Simulated assay, not measured.
Amino acid sequence: MRRYRDRHHGGRVLASALEAYAGRTDVIVLALPRGGVPVGFEVARHLGARLDVFLVRKLGVPGHEELAMGALASGGVRVVDPEVVDGLGLTDAVLDEAARREARELLRRERLYRRGGPPPRIEGQTVILVDDGIATGSSMRAAVAALKSQKPSRLVVGVPTAAPSTCEALARQVDDIVCVDTPEPFMAVGLWYEDFAQTTDEEVLALLEQAARERAEESQVPGGM
Rank of each mutant, 00 (worst) to 15 (best):
S74M: 08
G75F: 15
G75D: 06
G76R: 05
G76D: 03
R78K: 12
R78N: 00
V80E: 03
V80A: 00
D81M: 07
D81F: 15
D81T: 01
P82M: 14
P82N: 04
V84E: 02
V85N: 02
D86Q: 14
G87I: 14
G89H: 06
L90N: 08
V94D: 06
L95C: 04
E97V: 11
A98C: 01
R100Y: 15
E102T: 00
E102H: 09
A103C: 04
A103S: 12
R104E: 04
R104H: 15
R104G: 03
L107G: 01
R108A: 02
R109D: 00
L112I: 06
L112Q: 13
Y113S: 05
R114G: 02
R115D: 11
G116C: 03
G117M: 09
P120A: 03
R121E: 14
I122T: 02
E123Y: 10
T126P: 06
I128A: 07
L129A: 11
V130R: 11
V130M: 13
V130C: 08
D131W: 09
D131H: 07
G137K: 02
G137I: 00
G137A: 05
S138C: 14
S139I: 00
M140A: 09
A143V: 01
A145R: 14
A145Y: 06
A146G: 07
K148P: 07
S149M: 06
Q150R: 15
P152V: 00
S153G: 11
S153Q: 11
S153A: 12
R154K: 15
L155N: 03
V156W: 15
V159T: 06
P160F: 12
P160V: 06
T161K: 10
T161H: 11
A162Y: 03
A163Y: 13
P164C: 02
S165M: 11
T166N: 10
E168V: 11
L170C: 05
L170A: 05
R172E: 11
V174A: 13
D175W: 11
D176S: 05
V178F: 04
V178I: 09
V178K: 11
C179F: 12
V180L: 07
D181Q: 10
P183A: 05
P183S: 09
P183F: 13
P185R: 04
P185S: 03
F186L: 01
F186M: 01
F186Y: 13
A188G: 02
A188T: 02
G190P: 12
L191P: 11
W192F: 13
Y193Q: 02
D195C: 05
F196E: 07
F196R: 08
F196I: 08
Q198T: 07
Q198H: 07
T199N: 06
T199I: 13
T200W: 15
T200P: 04
D201M: 02
D201K: 01
E202T: 00
E203W: 14
V204G: 13
L205C: 10
A206K: 09
L208G: 04
E209C: 01
E209H: 14
Q210T: 09
Q210F: 12
A211Y: 09
R213F: 15
R213L: 10
R215V: 06
R215H: 12
E217M: 07
Q220A: 12
Q220S: 13
